[in-house]
């Protein structure tokens, strides 16, 4: 069973979103996502300062098995990327919710966060997929 922290928001494409309560959010991929990807060997990160729209591809995660696109659940400006993933992409597997974070985004519309799944809804989604 994958780990789904209660304090995060989720997308149906298996990203998690942490509200930093300062108009920014941190985004990564869920435990379920890293498990199905397998060993991550490379994460392609966007440039900081980039303005991205919800639904846009913001990076790629490559595992030994396959490449998987990362989709942005919210619109905003990339204010930080996790550069340590360049040398240690395995952090996405080992600590998907901590060291494995991918980008920090300054939200264009702070309210947009409310439209994302909460932990209960995401748990139901994962259970349905795993079922």
């Amino acid at each position: 069973m994958s780990h789904i922290p209660a304090n995060l928001r989720y997308t149906d494409s298996h990203e998690w979103v942490l509200d930093n309560n300062d108009g920014t959010v941190t985004i990564g991929i869920t435990d379920h996502a890293q498990e199905s990807l397998g060993d991550v060997v490379f994460v392609e990160l966007p440039d900081t300062g980039r303005q991205l729209d919800a639904g846009e591809e913001f990076g790629v995660i490559e595992s030994v098995k396959a490449a998987s696109d990362l989709y942005l659940p919210l619109s905003g400006e990339v204010v930080a990327v996790n550069e340590s993933l360049e040398d240690s992409p395995e952090a996405v597997n080992d600590h998907p919710y901590e060291d494995g974070w991918i980008i920090k985004l300054k939200l264009a519309e702070p309210d947009a966060l409310e439209a994302l799944l909460d932990a209960t809804a995401y748990d139901a989604l994962v259970s349905a997929e795993e079922g």
Binding site: G38, D39, V41, S63, V64, K65
Partner: peptide, 12 residues
């Protein structure tokens, strides 16, 4: 079987 619990990298 594409992989077991160890995962592709550790199996390799």
């Amino acid at each position: 079987p594409v992989q077991y619990a160890l995962g592709v990298k550790k199996e390799h």
